[in-house]
Amino acid sequence: MAINREHELHGRRKGRNLGLGLVLAAFVLIVFGITIAKMSGGAMMEAYDHTVRPSLMVEDE
């Protein structure tokens, strides 16, 4: 019995792997889309980063 014999189970696994791959790719696209939408809406692009960042200071303080 050859070790690479195709079984019906392999087809089903392939379908699952393909499905999961597409879901992950879609997730990446959605996160990217949210980022673009938030940034084009003028959302804050910088945040606290464990060090003083002058760009985050409120002016006239």
Binding site: L9, R13, G15
Partner: peptide, 10 residues
């Protein structure tokens, strides 16, 4: 019985 397909999880 057998291994689940993607549709089963959906």
């Amino acid at each position: 019985q057998d291994e689940a397909s993607f549709g089963d999880f959906f």
